[in-house]
């Protein structure tokens, strides 16, 4: 009898929509790709706490402060589930964090843009979380079980955040001239970076084919980006604001919105570390980690002493 071909069994499972679980055999590259993607996703949640955290102390009302705190706290929670999901693939949280701090691991480039006004908080909720949801809804059906399950929970909270972001902008859009201006300015600044969140064009995306075959991804970057544009182009009508793209236009033949060219030079510059806040974001994460070291050591030392005392008595 021929020995079973692990790779064939693995691909059969994927084709039959059976989830891959931590103890199942998987190709090394499947493990690596998932580890990279899930840890990158976890890092994005944690780094993403910083631009929004920038407005917690200055939130314009107590209700908005509470909503923002709860939102940023949810993101920390998402970071936790995702680190746990990635750990099932055999990498420790500490290793992942070290890779983030050394620059080896990436996080979503969108968080390298600054939050300059209060309206940015609304725009992040509406556009950035909106773009993230497109990707995340797809990921609830991704082939790796722990990742798919983490995404189900995360998606529920993210859609809530998106509605809150939109609602915050809606209030601005109906407010004073200064509030309307703030609202439009934030949309102008976040629109193009939000479109870049879906990653390079399909013709230039290096990891896509294998990821589609393994059902890590189920829709291409360009497909997701188009869905997002179609959704936002409609929603912005309620706000009475404009998207900063003169080429944005409904195309009846395609049944989609056409939109202008993305500045990919900017995208690659930010990926390479040259965005307006790349340095500040990583510095803030490293500082928190380094300044927390004595706290983590104390917790471990105390737990050890307590265990020892319990053992003696």
């Amino acid at each position: 009898m021929p020995s079973p071909d692990f790779e064939t069994i693995f691909q059969d499972k994927i084709d039959q929509e059976i989830k891959i679980e931590p103890k199942d055999w998987m190709p090394e590259n499947y493990r690596r790709t998932n580890t990279r993607q899930i840890s990158q996703h976890a890092h994005s949640e944690v780094v993403g706490m910083l631009p929004e955290g920038n407005w917690i102390s200055r939130a314009p009302s107590l209700k908005r402060k509470a909503i923002l705190l709860a939102k940023v706290q949810d993101e920390g929670g998402h970071g936790l589930y995702l680190y746990s999901a990635a750990e099932t693939l055999g990498m420790s949280r500490e290793e992942m964090i070290n890779d983030l701090h050394s620059g080896k691991a990436k996080y979503s480039s969108i968080f390298n843009y600054p939050t300059l006004t209060w309206a940015d908080i609304g725009a992040i909720g509406w556009l950035v979380d909106g773009a993230a949801i497109m990707n995340q809804v797809m990921l609830t059906r991704t082939s790796y079980g722990p990742y798919a399950r983490a995404m189900v929970r995360i998606c529920k909270e993210e859609s809530f955040h998106q509605r809150q972001g939109f609602e915050a902008l809606l209030v601005l859009s109906r407010g004073s001239a200064a509030q309307k201006e703030m609202c439009q300015d934030a949309i102008n600044r976040w629109w193009w970076p939000a479109l870049m969140m879906f990653g390079p064009r399909d013709t230039e995306s290096t990891n896509s084919d294998q990821s589609m075959k393994w059902k890590i991804k189920r829709k291409s970057n360009d497909e997701l980006r188009q869905n997002f544009v179609d959704m936002i182009a409609e929603q912005i009508k309620t706000l009475g604001m404009k998207l900063p793209d003169p080429e944005l236009k409904w195309n009846e033949a395609r049944k989609h919105y056409d939109f202008g060219a993305i500045n990919w030079d900017e995208f690659w510059q930010v990926v390479k570390g040259n965005g307006p806040c790349n340095k500040q974001r990583l510095d803030a994460r490293r500082k928190a980690w380094e300044e927390g070291e004595w706290v983590r050591e104390a917790a471990i030392a105390h737990a050890g002493k307590r265990a020892e005392r319990a053992g003696r008595s």
Partner: peptide, 21 residues
């Protein structure tokens, strides 16, 4: 709330933010 995003470890960052809330 000044700790939010800057805590010594993620679980405690969440805990202090929760207390703030």
């Amino acid at each position: 709330s000044e700790w939010c995003g800057h805590g010594p470890v993620l679980e405690q960052d969440i805990a202090i933010t929760n207390i703030s809330l």
